[in-house]
Design a protein around this nucleic acid. Structure first.
Lengths: 232, 232
DNA sequence: GCATATTTGTCCGTATGTATA
DNA sequence: CTATACATACGGACAAATATG
């Protein structure tokens, strides 16, 4: 990692980038983590990475802090920054949040006399998922599934909730790395997303909520089993 | 603000404090903001505050960054740090989140065969609120009300949800500053919290949820009206 | 509109404290 | 216990942007 990354950085620097250096660095590190280049547990030394990216330690620490707040990195006092290692408890909590928030988003669709919800985000996500599956891009399929649930939460119309869910889903990427076969894990959920979407479009929000609850339980269970298996 | 604050800082430094300087500074600034010492819109100059607290600019900026992530401060490029000024849209969103999360927390109490929930946090909050009201400490009454709802969310048993709610309630403190008469605003909600608690203890989670929904709507409405009044 | 002073953005070097081999 | 490596915190420097007169 050095030259090409440097170029990436300076490219952005060239234009009137209204983003700070730290944010651009954070983008680079975030994708590295999510894509699996930096594995969970790995330590990110300030000097090493700072030199590689050609930025000062202070700036790098700013980027670290951004990612710490997203829970992708953990900071141990006087020891440094590490890529987050999620425990089974984290996994359980992430799905607890998802169940709470995603189901609540669907539920409040049923109650008040609300305008017809905008489901284009979910539709595009499903379409992207279908394309990815057809072309055997399993990682992209996982991303599309994420976007589907992101879109689902957006139905609640709350920016803060959206942001929280973005964070939760990013953390979940760390969990997904334990699945060695991304196809077997991601593919079955594509039709289930479609089913949820269709149920919603039919106006049956409670039905969609029930489907979603089972969906989340299955996914959580599958991941928890893989966790247990790897600790054996 | 200078000497006493410095002492506070060094006190903690003495023991085996596992917190960094930036975090301790953030604690000081956070309470200043929440208590209203720094009003919304106020600019926090780096040099001024850094000198007052006896810390370097770099360290102070780290503390700023922490509070920025909590949405208590906003950063304007090349202009500095400002205490957040919440818009009516922010207010609406905060209550949208509260309604989503708090009601969901109660709802999932009803469904599964779950262990009897631990309501001691809510009970202590109500007791503290009663004491504060009796002693005319209206600001503390507001704090106790916050703790009640914090405890309510804790029923869901999700650390991430707890943390999110902590952030939401901290932001809400910024909104409360628009209410010039804290008694008139906070006092009526004390008996309503008690009523919700009793309903829950009776095992009637759906009933508590209905009460809570009305409670939140009333509170939001009251604050929104005050916002509109002040912009007139 | 312009020139100036002030403040922030970014970075460096260093001294000190802390953890680990 | 010592040595090494690293993070923490500080102070200073300079460029860039902003505010002020």
């Amino acid at each position: 990692m050095s030259d090409n990354v440097l170029e990436e950085l300076s490219e952005d620097r060239g234009r009137l980038g209204r983003t700070s250096t730290a944010e651009r660095v954070a983008v680079i590190l975030r994708t590295r983590i999510i894509e699996g280049g930096f594995r969970p547990g790995m330590r990110l030394a300030e000097e090493e990475i700072g030199n590689a990216l050609g930025i000062s330690r202070n700036t790098l620490r700013e980027a670290f802090r951004l990612l710490t707040h997203e829970r992708l990195l953990v900071h141990e006092l006087n020891r440094g920054m590490f890529v987050r290692k999620l425990t089974v408890e984290d996994l359980e909590d992430l799905y607890r949040v998802r169940r709470l928030v995603e189901c609540a988003a669907l539920r409040q669709l049923a109650a008040p006399p609300c305008p017809p919800p905008d489901m284009t985000a979910m539709e595009t996500a499903v379409a992207a998922g279908r394309r990815a599956a057809a072309e055997q891009r399993w990682r992209d399929l996982g991303t599309a599934n994420m976007h589907f649930h992101q879109g689902l939460v957006e139905l609640a119309g709350s920016p803060r909730t959206d942001e929280m869910m973005r964070g939760v889903l990013a953390e979940l990427r760390l969990v997904f790395h334990v699945m060695e076969n991304p196809r077997r894990f991601h593919e079955p959920y594509l039709p289930r997303n479609e089913q949820i979407l269709r149920t919603l479009q039919r106006g049956d929000a409670p039905g969609a909520e029930r489907l979603l609850a089972v969906y989340l339980d299955d996914s959580r269970h599958q991941l928890a089993e893989e966790y247990a298996r790897q600790l054996r």
